[in-house]
Design a protein around this nucleic acid. Sequence first.
DNA 1: ATGCCGATAATGTGCATACATATTAAGGAG
DNA 2: CTCCTTAATATGTATGCACATTATCGGCAT
Lengths: 232, 232
Amino acid sequence: MAGPRNSWQGVQDEVMQRIRTRSWKPGETIPNEADLAAEFGCARTTINRALRNLAEAGVLDRRRRAGTRVAEHPVRKATLRIPIIRREIEARGMRHGYVLLERSEHAAPETVCAEMNCDIGTRLIKVRALHLADGLPYVIEDRWINPNVVAGAREADFSEMNANEWLVTNASFTKGEFAVSARSASIEDAMTLETQAGAALINVRRTTWDGPHGITLVNLIYAPGYQIQTEI
Amino acid sequence: MAGPRNSWQGVQDEVMQRIRTRSWKPGETIPNEADLAAEFGCARTTINRALRNLAEAGVLDRRRRAGTRVAEHPVRKATLRIPIIRREIEARGMRHGYVLLERSEHAAPETVCAEMNCDIGTRLIKVRALHLADGLPYVIEDRWINPNVVAGAREADFSEMNANEWLVTNASFTKGEFAVSARSASIEDAMTLETQAGAALINVRRTTWDGPHGITLVNLIYAPGYQIQTEI
DNA sequence: ATGCCGATAATGTGCATACATATTAAGGAG
DNA sequence: CTCCTTAATATGTATGCACATTATCGGCAT
């Protein structure tokens, strides 16, 4: 599976093995790249790639001149995949449905302006929609869009094409923020998601930016039972 | 910031620029590595590193012989950092506190056995503890440990050293699963976290494995208001 | 048309080498 | 002893080359 001993994957596996078996202990400095290359019988480049990869994963700590050490407190990194909603639903083998609940344009509340870094009073587009999986409520998409940043947003009506996909293909961002929290279902949430008020829901809030300009701020309110899963 | 045009970072930035400005459109095939190397005046290796990096980030789709294309539906990847709890609290500038609530050993429930892949009736260690930030409840750590997989777990009493840190330094895993969901506070949760029953809480469930053997299964139940944040 | 199969073109990887850069250690001046 | 300069060292990166791997394309036989 891992490939031969002299491939970067092979080196990576062997290094992991030594860390797991405590042959190299947390905090300890491991041999330098040149020595490892000699030991493994491969080029330093190969060792470098393996160790760099493990450093990115948080298993190793590398510093120039100081050398490479086994991370004392391995800050493991899990990568979350963030697909567009339609594909997330289809990937689970379910049929995607979409209902536009509201589309309006008005001066945004102060808190929204603050988060999107736009002048108070800027007229933003508000979109509220429901995504369905096999006909059942899946997630509420509650979104603000700044039409001054995204060309064509005023003309899109989001009744056929959902805002999530429209933005992915029509706007590009340089930076994004992402927060997951828990939320007690409001009466409105509960009615839309066909559940009971007070139910515990996952709320994902995402802001995306084009340079200094906030493009969109979205709250995704998932139906009960939703889980964000990944491997470490 | 980005370095000169002929560094892999420079290439990466320029490629991102072209994607953002729709100079290379989603789904479109971009020039091959050799051509790009000629255009940028650098080695193919350098181009390769830049494109490989962007492919890992989900921006590009690469296939041998078929070439490199701009991802149609950019499945962005956010990386979550998972530090040990004490350091997470200290990183926020707060003082970490710890209270062991329960430590027992008994035959595990069927559902736990199923998730940890151990025989039904296996005696597991159960640890329930509360972590505090500046004296206030921060998260409940509700954990099962398989002492047959982790040497020394039976001897550790977890009253001083918390199980989270003990495991990090005494066990190593080959694989881990990770799920975030929302949970309505039970009466017991509410009392421990000093909040009200029914409050919406973030629940992180993590299982770690050493090969085929489940090491530990933990539910982290965070106090209200907790957010998981990251950048994209 | 259909299916097999080899040529081909793209990425994936490894190697030897050179130089860049950061950081520590050592040494010298005051 | 302290501060500054300088040298040594480990990692970071770029290059040119070679070969491995794998889809895809196109031709050929059925």
